[in-house]
Amino acid sequence: MDAISDPSFQNTKSKITAVEELPSLLTVVVDTTPKAWAELDRESEHEGNLISALQSLIVFLNSHLTFNSANQVAVIAAHSSGIKYLYPVTSTSQDETAARSADLSIINSDMYRQFRNVDETVLEELYKLLQEEGKREQPSGFQKSTLSGAMSAGFTYINRIIKEQSSASLKARLMVVTCGSSGGKDEVFQYIPIMNCIFSATKLKCPVDVVKIGGSQESTFLQQATDATNGVYLHVPSTEGLIQYLTTAMFIDPSLRPIIVKPNQGSVDFRTSCYLTGKVVAVGFVCSVCLCVLSVIPPGNRCPACDSEFDEHVTTKLKKKPVVPGMIQKKRKRIQE
């Protein structure tokens, strides 16, 4: 059967298929809570940080669209009272915008059509959003951040787009742009939702990248998110030069991730904090019912979170300190001398 060993039977496609490029979907979640950006303005003594960040972001969206003509983009804004899709917009809201109220002069009308559509829509919707925010009265009390909600909505959008493609080969990724030193207490309440988002991202094989502008502390949850999903975490001191960061470190397409070296995060702090004392815990006790982490055995043998009683024997065993033989006798000797 020499005919079969003829070289025409060799699979000559290997080189050609390597060149074919897969489209990708970029979903951007922008944290637009005015409070956080105002704090950033105050800290950096520089007005209009949000605007400059958005300028860089729009150029970044354009560059993503250039990469492959079939690439798609989605932008979701997480503001103080909910989430809003900046792009793509559904047609019902588009009918209402017969009169374009936004100042679109920063966009050149002669631009490449594809870019222009995206950029104009994003600006328009953002302008409307900020106007509405101004009109709404500020509620008192503690407001939790809506970032986890925007990320969840982003994942459902990715899920929908992947289902709609007939040839299952769309790669997706999620980018989060946040700012300010919003670390600290409010994050505790969002731990579970962000964790759920991380797990669904790993299931969808969608890397999560994070850009944090300003602020002094790292956002531990977002760091864990990027670490678990093979994403990039970048802490940028200010909005100057943001476009450089975006087009170098954040531009890595999912298909290129296996061969490009990502910026290293250093050590990520995976430790959690104790439910009772709030200290960071390295060795702790975990309630087997509600999985809350405690650094000390609670008094009364009851779990503070779920109120379940613990077994007496086990707790006494845990309380015991290790016995070191030989020290007692030495001590006696020293006292005698």
Binding site: I252, D253, S255, L256, I259
Partner: peptide, 18 residues
């Protein structure tokens, strides 16, 4: 730009603003 291979596109994009 769109005719280039993927990695070339990536490099160019990172060099554009630099």
């Amino acid at each position: 730009y769109r005719l280039l291979p993927k990695l070339a596109k990536f490099f160019i994009m990172s060099l554009v603003f630099n």
